[in-house]
Structure formats: structure tokens, C-alpha cells
């Protein structure tokens, strides 16, 4: 990506560019052929399947092998597929509830771990991070066994049918919020808190006016991560979902079992687009340069 930048137009425009290539400096790894080859191959492996998937979602053919021309037909078909739309709505509902609850929980946990010293804090911190490191399949099986053991009611009216999936998603996604917010708290100057109290603010006012605004980029980033994780989670959802609570990834999986039609590609592409947008936003909110972006009239 940055291959051309090293030799780029660093000087003025009127200088005549010499044909002779400059020698590669000892630390200019981006200008070495083997480095460019490795990077290129990696990107190809990573993104070629996704690009193919997106491209073939526009393919005018029932079978997903040969390119037969451009069409929006399968997006239309996916849109008219009622069970697919139902799964999509389920996914969105779960993601929204999960994001709200996981964000609140995650922020509270991060602040508690930063603010207070209490017995067993180190152990608690370790346990809280467990859902991040635990294999998803184990988490899924554990969730399924848990809900079966306590006899979680089935056959509830619509949003409640999704309640066990929501709980499972919250359980594995709030640590991600906590970690993100905690990371931002590390850079918090505690004198700001002292200054706020010194100026007459109560504990709550300090939290409301000083700490939370400072954390906002971290909270937004964490929330978007929780949203993304929930929206495209398959493994844990697969184990906890009942027949009446199918989410988009689970639905896509079941469609693929019959045949990989462009319809599946179209649905997947929609999921990818939403995920990518959320991730890009999350990264933008986390980047340090965002803090400097104060508007001035």
C-alpha cells in the first residue's frame, strides 16, 4: 500500500526526477521486494475471498461458479425472503439490546477497576477477561447447558424469545467494552479529578462532567465493538438459538447447507457492510488524533 511513498514527490514540482533509483536504506523495509511480496500475498489471502463473495453477489446466475453478467436480482430476492428478513431483524434487535447493556456494564466495570482498591481485585480482573480468551465453542456449549439446566422458558412472545441469546451475547461482549474503556482511563490525568473537586464539584458531578466526557471516545468505540461482535456472532448464537430465534449468521449457515446461491452472497455482503462501517467508526473514535479535533469559529 505504502510502496510508492518512499520514492514519492517529496521535493518541489519543478525538479526533474532522475531515472536512477535511489539505494534502498537499511531500515526501508517497505522498499524491499521480499517484504512487498509477503505483504501482497497476505492481503490477497485475506481479502480475495471477501471480494469474490461481494462480486458474485451481483452475478446473474443461479450457480455461483461462472460470471454471467451484473444484476441486483439476488438482493431483491433476499429482501423478499421473509425468513431471511426475520433473521436479520432478530440479529439487529439482539445487537441493539446487547450494545446498550454491555456498554453500561463494561463502563461500570472499567471505572470500578480503575477507581477502587478492593480485596480480590486482581482475581476479579482476570475472571472478567475470561470471555475474551475462552474458546467460543466452549462458551457456546456452556451457555446451552446453562440455559437447559435452569430451564429457561421457551415459546415467549417475540423480543423475549431472543432473551437467552441476548444474555449470552452480553456475557461475552461486555469485557471488550471494559478493556477499551480501561485503556482510555490509563491516560486520564487524575489531577483533573482533583481539580474538579477542588473547584466545588461533588463526586457525581465530577463523574458526569469530567470523567465520562473524557471517556466518550472509548465508550463509543467499545459500544461499536460490542455491536459488531453481537451482529456477526455465529458459534455462541448457534448453541443458544431456538427454532423461533434464528439470527442472520445462523440463517446464512443453514441456507449454505443447501446451496451457495447469490442470495447468500447478497445477505453476507449486507452483513459485511454493516460490520465494516461499525469497525471503521470504532477505530476512528479510538484514534488519538480525534481528541485534537476541536472546531473553532
Amino acid at each position: 500500500m505504502s510502496a510508492g511513498q518512499g520514492a514519492g514527490p517529496a521535493g518541489g514540482g519543478k525538479r526533474i526526477v532522475l531515472r536512477r533509483r535511489e539505494a534502498v536504506g537499511p531500515l526501508e523495509y517497505t522498499r524491499r521486494w521480499w517484504m512487498r511480496l509477503t505483504v501482497g500475498a497476505t492481503f490477497l489471502m485475506l481479502y480475495a475471498p471477501i471480494i469474490l463473495l461481494v462480486v458474485y453477489s451481483f452475478n446473474n446466475s443461479r450457480r455461483n461458479i461462472v460470471w454471467r453478467g451484473f444484476t441486483f436480482k439476488y438482493y431483491e430476492k433476499a429482501w423478499n425472503n421473509e425468513s431471511l428478513i426475520e433473521a436479520f431483524v432478530n440479529s439487529l434487535a439482539i445487537a441493539v439490546v446487547n450494545t446498550a447493556v454491555a456498554t453500561i456494564l463494561g463502563v461500570l466495570v472499567a471505572i470500578a477497576l480503575w477507581r477502587f482498591r478492593f480485596p480480590g481485585k486482581a482475581a476479579y480482573e482476570g475472571f472478567m477477561m475470561l470471555p475474551i480468551v475462552i474458546p467460543e465453542i466452549c462458551m457456546g456449549v456452556a451457555m446451552m447447558a446453562f440455559f437447559a439446566r435452569i430451564g429457561w422458558p421457551t415459546g415467549l412472545p417475540w423480543p423475549l424469545t431472543l432473551s437467552n441469546i441476548m444474555i449470552a451475547h452480553i456475557a461475552f461482549s461486555f469485557p471488550f467494552v471494559a478493556v477499551t474503556v480501561r485503556g482510555r482511563l490509563v491516560g486520564f490525568n487524575r489531577e483533573l479529578e482533583d481539580a474538579s473537586k477542588d473547584l466545588g464539584a461533588s463526586e457525581w458531578q465530577t463523574m458526569r462532567y469530567i470523567v465520562l466526557p473524557y471517556l466518550r471516545p472509548g465508550i463509543i468505540a467499545g459500544a461499536l465493538i460490542a455491536f459488531t461482535l453481537s451482529l456477526d456472532d455465529f458459534v455462541i448464537t448457534f448453541f443458544t438459538a431456538g427454532p423461533n430465534s434464528v439470527t442472520l449468521p445462523v440463517k446464512i449457515f443453514s441456507m449454505v447447507r443447501f446451496s451457495v446461491t447469490p442470495e447468500v452472497n447478497a445477505a453476507s455482503t449486507v452483513l459485511i457492510v454493516i460490520t465494516v462501517i461499525a469497525t471503521v467508526l470504532a477505530m476512528r473514535f479510538q484514534s488519538p488524533s480525534r481528541r485534537a479535533g476541536g472546531e473553532e469559529g
Binding site: E191, L192, D198, A201
Partner: peptide
Amino acid sequence: APNRRPINMVFQSYA
């Protein structure tokens, strides 16, 4: 408490 004292402070980091 600090927020009820009739004094104010300028911090080293300015805060």
C-alpha cells in the same frame, strides 16, 4: 471535603 473548602488550587499539570 475538598469541594467544601474555601480554598482553590493550581495544579502542577494545570489540570
